[in-house]
Amino acid sequence: MQPSPLANPLATVAQLETPGSQLDRIPPDLEDSAHFAGARLTQAAGILLRLPQEVVAQAIVVFMRFWVGPEGGSLAEFGAEQVSAASLYLTTKLSAYPKSARSLINVYAYLASLPTTCIGLEQLKGKMPETCYFVTEGTYERRRTTLFTTEQRILRTLGFNVHVNLPYTLCITYLQALDIFTHPRAPELAKRAIAHLNTALLSPQFLYLTHQPPALATAAIYLAAREVGIKMPECEWWEVFDTDREELGFLCVGMLSLEGFAQGERDKWEGKKCPMSVEDMEAEVKRRREVDG
């Protein structure tokens, strides 16, 4: 009958074993970097387009789904930036906040003009000279065609499975069920939990593609409660939310490890740009080969 509104289609083991990029000999660390940078780019574009986080989160999950599996997209064929733009465009189209191709292209042009991959919130607010991100009509036409073909390709690769159920509202519901909101520091906990859910979107382990929303929400609450120092029930409360101990442990480790990963990425691309297009990726792979000899 009707699919559960709590469940998402998950990636299979075979899909996780062989991503499309590795078949094209893209180094795994470079692949992770490109996924991470692409997801952050989607997030930044979503903020600039004034989209609600749920739309951005859906776009990031669609972006991540695209790369998974031997039949998925490869970084040798699609740039992370173009897929990010197309997945955001596709998601907004289905949401209550459709954005025109023009505003999307403008926003991505602006983001591309920023000097580094590690964009902070301050840089998004900062004013850049307009000449840096001006899009001529010819460029616009070209990019729009790319946007549409990439969108089409995403749909075909995912078999039109573009719907994403998110854990955000579940998380709040769970907190209410745990009767947390009587606690004076409960808002802090809720904010931390949501922050963990947002962070998990960027995970190189594809946490949103391997775990269902209830488990993600539970793990985020568990971590947030420990960080904020609010005592949870002594029993295995996570089982009430259909998460077993093993899954909870795995997700907690996965979510916590992201901080180190993000720091590593920042160090790696400080002042540089992660290759976000097919040409840049090719050049980077070539450069590495030369360095290695």
């Binding site: 469940a7 998402n8 289609p9 078999g159 039109f160 269902q212 259909d242």
Partner: peptide, 13 residues
């Protein structure tokens, strides 16, 4: 008994 949610996976068209 924990509820398991199955929503399949995805594959290209």
């Amino acid at each position: 008994k924990l509820l398991r949610f199955e929503a399949g996976g995805w594959s290209p068209c």
